[in-house]
């Protein structure tokens, strides 16, 4: 970690006071524990870390307007009814690949599932009820633009923090927030799509690595869980696919995402965080039977673990500090 001459700079200052934003410096600050001071800074931080926004701020306007126009075009396409757009010879029973009608029916199918899941995204939050329309359009647009992946359950959860933050930025038009969230989701999915494929190969590999990580970090805990046949294959699928959005409150998730987005390569870092989550509840797990231990991990949010502790443990793992040291300092 780099030493700063004049104390840590805030995320907002780093973004606002420079014509070219130093993303490396942003990463360093987040790593050192800085969190964005307001929702606007967080929205910009995330888009910079995802490389959705270039570091050179003079290019922002052009970049933003380009993809916002592009998104508007995608949404217009979706809204078209085949009765109006289909060429002569195309009809509702067409089996042709490029049939507007065939396409229309595929869309209808995805829409049902998207509709179901959008309603089940942060179901107790009134903000998310207002975001149902934008979320629905974004997920549908994504599934149509990426037909090799389509819509997979869980993508709604990856979209949630993005649309929530972007649409809270003071003064932003809701259609612009929607376009920005679409763009960020597509960027996140570039990394995450292997974990959403039916083959499960990448996911299983990742879960095996998580198992190795846990064995290395806390052999006693790993031994106990293994003796109960509780492996990451049981509880880790959701953790990895959703970047932990269902394991913490939304506010805690945002802090976690600052960190997840700032570290490269990302997967080893997520693995460190996941293993730290297990370690954070080790007292509950050690001595527990299958039922208690499995439920502790499968319903992780009910443990009310502080995300700061998890991040401290994850950092300690990276720097080689002992678990006991962090846990006793609490």
């Amino acid at each position: 970690m780099r030493e700063k001459e004049n104390g840590p700079e805030s995320i907002t200052e780093l973004i606002d006071n420079n014509a070219v934003v130093d993303c490396q410096e942003l990463r360093v600050q987040v790593w050192a524990g800085s969190t964005p001071e307001n929702v606007r800074s967080r929205a910009l931080l995330w888009q910079l870390l995802l490389s959705c926004l270039p570091q050179d701020k003079s290019l922002w306007e052009k970049t933003l307007s380009e993809w916002r126009t592009q998104y508007a075009e995608i949404v217009r396409e979706i809204a078209k009814h085949p009765a109006d757009s289909a060429p002569d010879g195309d009809h509702p029973l067409s089996l042709k690949q490029d049939s507007h009608w065939a396409h229309f029916f595929i869309v209808r199918e995805s829409e049902k599932l998207i509709d179901l899941d959008v309603k089940r995204t942060h179901p107790t939050s009134s903000e998310f009820r207002r975001l149902e329309g934008p979320m629905h359009r974004i997920l549908l647009a994504y599934s149509l633009q990426h037909q090799e992946i389509g819509y997979r359950q869980g993508m709604n959860e990856l979209l949630a923090p993005l649309i929530y933050i972007y649409s809270e930025v003071p003064g932003i038009k809701s259609i612009d927030a929607e376009a920005d969230a679409y763009h960020s989701l597509a960027t996140v999915m570039k990394e995450m799509s292997p974990y959403y494929t039916p083959s499960l190969e990448a996911l299983h590999k990742e879960l095996d690595l998580l198992d190795d990580t846990l064995r290395l970090r806390d052999p006693e805990l790993h031994r106990h869980l293994t003796s109960l046949s509780i492996r990451p294959q049981l509880y880790g699928t959701r953790w990895i696919r959703l970047w932990l959005t269902q394991e913490f409150s939304l506010q805690q998730t945002l802090i976690l995402w600052d960190s997840i987005l700032s570290v490269h390569p990302r997967m080893p870092w997520i693995r460190s965080i996941c293993s730290s989550m297990v370690v954070a509840v080790r007292d509950k797990l050690l001595g527990a039977d299958f039922n208690t231990a499995a439920q502790t991990l499968l319903r992780y949010s009910t443990n009310n673990v502080d995300v700061e502790l998890v991040l401290k443990l994850a950092h300690a793992f990276r720097t080689g500090s002992s678990i006991q040291e962090i846990m006793s300092r609490r």
Partner: peptide
């Protein structure tokens, strides 16, 4: 639970 979230993976 009127507010149940989508099940991803498994629960028991």
């Amino acid at each position: 639970n009127y507010d149940s979230r989508t099940t991803i993976g498994v629960e028991f």
